[in-house]
Design a protein around this nucleic acid. Structure first.
Lengths: 205, 205
DNA sequence: CGAAGGAATGAACCGAGGTTCACTATCAAA
DNA sequence: TTTGATAGTGAACCTCGGTTCATTCCTTCG
């Protein structure tokens, strides 16, 4: 008598896995990595502590999966922009604006994923994400330089500067997560975009 | 019979205090905050664990003092530049270059002081430092805008962008502390300066 | 229904690291 | 030299969080 999982049973498992993952992600989004203790996650997911270890062999793996799943979405968006048609200026502007506005929608999560350090294992995944993101900017910059519309600059350094600039301006000073309202957010995004654009392109509008 | 410390005894105490502080700072400079465990610090300072608590009531206080002492020097330098005579462009350039080159001399320490999170208590001190630093840039920017030599931009946001830009470009990608040599360092500093300058001033050279 | 095996449980375990404290060593005043 | 007070010691303690595992629950299949 071999136990064979029904389709619905498999589904239930997957659901539970997803539920735990979601709970963990939400905790990170609310209070950063330190809020995502295994016990907390379990409680929030309506599950026992040990159950978490049925799906991930260690906490670090769970965290890594959160980083990977959330950030892969962001990176693919950035890639799409970099690959699209259009002038480098437009693309750069679009990439910065898009990324900034998306990050603002979940500041705490964005901070946790971009800046807040974690276990070395998770760190690897996170740095990879950041590198990929920077790489998207780098490609756009490089294109602009080749076409002669951007001034001569080291694309790698400039890309890092761009990433750093909105990291700090968006999620850095907001550590106490002040909800400043949509109006202020728009202003912030606009200013950051201007800053990076001017730095990369030379002239603003 | 009242015990009164001799001058030399007081001196010895101060020396020991300084020695412990230095040991802790060096550990942070080598391996970040996590390397500065109380036991490690004590060993490095040639002192027993408990002795540390004779000079600081908690580890957080020791850490806070490290942050404060190192960063106050940096801030005062930045302030001096902001206060000096000269055109805003020159001052901005000088401030960025100075800060970047100083940070590069001790990347790991710079990272720990600028970016790496710690206990909330220490965090307060660190954020204060970062805010002061940003404020120096903000003042220079504001002056440039008032004089009409800088384009219109939100000085607070731009200052945050500047700080973030070199934070990322200088100490961000260097997590594995790659010693790239003086030549590469100079290039890096030059590029970052250009980037920030162009963003703030409009035209590069 | 009943056996078999996977899924879930949560209390106990364990290591890491900060902190304490009873004790010893040292120093200055009498 | 004795004595009162401070400095120094380091093993033990405590807390926090991740991990384990003996036990129980639940689902499938004969």
């Amino acid at each position: 008598m071999v136990y064979r999982r029904t389709e619905s049973a498999t589904q239930r498992l997957a659901d539970k896995r997803a539920r735990i993952l979601k709970a963990a992600r939400e905790l990170v989004a609310e209070g950063g990595w330190s809020a995502a203790q295994v016990d907390n996650v379990a409680v929030k997911a309506g599950v026992a502590t040990g159950t978490v270890y049925r799906y991930w062999s260690a906490k670090a793996e769970l965290c890594a999966e959160i980083v990977a799943s959330v950030s892969s979405r962001e990176v693919s968006i950035a890639k799409a922009i970099a690959d699209a048609d259009g002038s480098p200026v437009e693309k750069l502007q679009s990439a910065i604006r898009t990324f900034a506005s998306r990050a603002l929608r979940g500041r705490r999560l964005a901070y946790a994923l971009i800046a807040e350090p974690v276990d070395p294992e998770v760190e690897t995944v996170r740095l990879d994400y950041r590198a990929q993101l920077a790489h998207c900017f780098e490609r756009i910059l490089r294109e602009g330089i080749m076409r002669g519309v951007f001034p001569r600059l080291d694309p790698a350094v400039a890309a890092a500067c761009i990433v750093g600039a909105f990291m700090e301006a968006l999620v850095g000073p907001l550590a106490p997560a002040k909800g400043t309202g949509a109006r202020a957010d728009r202003h912030l995004i606009e200013q950051i975009t201007q800053f990076c654009l001017r730095a990369s392109v030379g002239a603003p509008e």
